[in-house]
Design a protein around this nucleic acid. Structure first.
Lengths: 97, 97
DNA sequence: GCGATAGTTCGTAAAATATCGAACTATGGA
DNA sequence: TCCATAGTTCGATATTTTACGAACTATCGC
């Protein structure tokens, strides 16, 4: 994997965001990213198998919630907070507050 | 059916709300209730079979988003907007805005 | 080049969800 | 009481989602 595909923020839909956040694992990841800032996948796996975690990150990326960048041998994840705030004002504040 | 069971607002979780709203039919129902005010189930069925619509209303009620009251032969649905606003400030505004 | 580490992808099995027809229930009105 | 209307419940099927092991890929350091 050389680079990840992330949807343009304009293509992100609320429906997909809700779907992504309807899973407790993913909601937990998003909240932890908010509280603690950017983190690698393994810092967020909660002891789950890698393939499971990888799946959840894919859903979060596809939904437009998380941006993943490759940093050497690790992959660093960030909430797309600023873009999301512009696209859906107040949503992430309500979700994370 | 004599009366519906609705969860106490304190038992409502964001996770369940997200699950309920992750379906396009249900998100549509919630938005229409917001735009047009209380409505019967059949006014919100969008041509779908009754059993399908009934299922979606059950999910919306169980998630704490919608309150249904019996009015004669029809069942009237209302967004639990005020309660939701107190429980999750800003959430419904973001969802509906 | 050779490990070691971090994650992805694939295949599959299990669980949850959506959809719909058919039968049922409750209410109001003729 | 009988009928029509509004909606629920049941049962079956099809689709989606989750979870996880195994095999694979990419990068770093030696």
């Amino acid at each position: 994997m050389r680079a990840y595909k992330h949807p343009s923020i304009d293509d992100v839909t609320m429906e997909e965001i809700f779907h992504a956040l309807s899973d407790p694992v993913r909601l937990g990841i998003v909240r932890q990213l908010h509280r603690e800032g950017d983190q690698t996948c393994s810092a967020l796996d909660g002891g789950r198998p890698k393939s499971t975690v990888s799946h959840h990150f894919r859903v979060l990326r596809d939904a437009g919630l998380v941006h993943t960048r490759v940093e050497g041998v690790t992959h660093m994840n960030a909430l797309r907070r600023k873009e999301l705030d512009e696209r859906f004002p107040g949503l992430m504040t309500a979700v994370l507050g």
